[in-house]
Simulated scan of single mutants.
Amino acid sequence: MKFIPAMAAISTLLCATPLAGAASLHSHWEQFKAHRAFHHLSADGQRAFQDIMNARDILQTGGKTEAAIPALYDAQKRLAAAEKADKKFQAAENDLHPAPQHPVAANHQPVVGQTDWLPVGGEFIVNETLAPEKKTAVASANAQLKSGNTDQAAETMKVVGEDTDFILALAPITPVQGAVYRATVFTEGHHPQEAVDALNQALDSVIFVSENAVESQAPATAAPAPAAATK
C-alpha cells in the first residue's frame, strides 16, 4: 500500500503540549499509543491532503485553474479545523526519525525547531513471518485506514494482535498551510505550474515515523533515589 505523499507515501498524535527532547516525546507517544495510534489520525488532516492531491491533479491536467480553486479552499478550511483540534502534537523534526520503509521525499525541506504535526495517514507494516490469514487482515486494515474507517481497521487488526509495526504520516501544519496559501494565490492568478510546485512542497513536507522507532528513543528509566533518612 502507498500513502499519498502522506496517504501515496502520502496515496498518519497526541496533545498540543510541547515535547522537550526524547524523554518527553516517548512519554507523549505512550499516551497516544495507549489509545491506539490509528484512532488519533486527523480526519480533517486526511481530507485536506486529499484536497491537495485533487487540486494538484486538476492543475497538472491541462492547467485548469478555475476547477482547482474549490479543492484549495476546502484544503485551507480543513487545515484550519485540524489545527484547532486535539490530534496535533509538537516536536522538533530531528526528534522524529523517518521509518526505513518510507524515507523522506527527495525534495523534502526539514522544518527547523519545534513545530506542530498532524497525523494524516497510517499504515501497518506486514511482518513476513505472519501467517497468511494475518497478512490478509493487515492488507484489509490498511485499506480501511486509507478510506477513513478506523473502527473497522481496529476490529480487523484483532486477528493480527500486536505483531506489526505501525507507520504514521506526519505533516507539519504551518509549512503545509503556507504552501497551500501560495498555491491558492498562484491558481487565482492563473499560474498553474507555480501552484503545482507549491502543492508538491506541501506533499514533500510529510515524514513517516515508525511506532517502534519512537519507542526506541526513550532513555532507560533511572532507579528512584532512596528516601532521605528521617531524624
Rank of each mutant, 00 (worst) to 15 (best):
L168A: 11
E162K: 05
D163A: 07
I173G: 10
I167V: 08
R182W: 15
M157F: 01
F166M: 13
Q177N: 05
Y181W: 12
T156Y: 05
I167L: 12
P175A: 12
F166V: 08
Q177M: 11
L168V: 14
A154Q: 04
V160E: 00
D165T: 04
T174R: 13
L168G: 05
K158R: 08
V176A: 05
E155W: 15
A171I: 13
T174H: 14
A171L: 13
E162N: 11
A179N: 01
A154E: 04
D163F: 11
T156F: 05
V176F: 08
I167M: 07
I167S: 05
A183W: 02
D163N: 08
A154N: 08
A169G: 02
I167C: 06
G161V: 03
F166K: 01
M157H: 00
V160C: 04
T174S: 11
T164L: 15
K158I: 06
K158T: 04
Y181A: 15
A169N: 01
V180A: 10
I173T: 04
L168D: 06
Q177C: 09
P172D: 14
L168M: 15
A169F: 11
E162C: 10
P172M: 13
I173R: 05
A171C: 15
P172I: 09
A153S: 01
A183T: 02
M157I: 01
G178S: 12
G178H: 09
I173L: 15
A179I: 03
D165A: 14
D165F: 06
A183F: 09
E162S: 13
R182H: 09
A154F: 14
T174P: 07
A183M: 06
A169L: 06
M157T: 00
V176W: 04
K158Y: 02
L170A: 10
V160P: 00
V160Q: 01
F166N: 02
A153E: 04
R182N: 13
A183E: 01
V176N: 00
A169V: 04
G178W: 14
V176G: 02
V180L: 15
G161D: 00
V160S: 03
T174G: 06
A169K: 03
G161Q: 00
P175V: 10
A169P: 00
K158E: 08
A171F: 15
F166I: 07
A153K: 02
P172C: 07
K158G: 05
I173E: 12
G161T: 01
A154K: 07
V159M: 12
K158A: 13
A153L: 12
R182Y: 06
A169Y: 07
T164N: 07
Y181C: 15
Q177G: 08
L168P: 00
L170S: 08
G161A: 03
R182L: 12
T156W: 09
A169D: 06
I173C: 09
E162G: 04
L168W: 12
M157Q: 00
D163E: 01
I167A: 03
D165H: 03
G178Y: 02
I167T: 06
A154S: 11
G161P: 00
A154C: 09
G178N: 07
A153D: 02
V180D: 03
G178I: 10
T156H: 12
A171K: 06
M157L: 08
G161I: 04
A171T: 05
E155V: 09
T164W: 09
I173P: 02
V159D: 02
I173W: 08
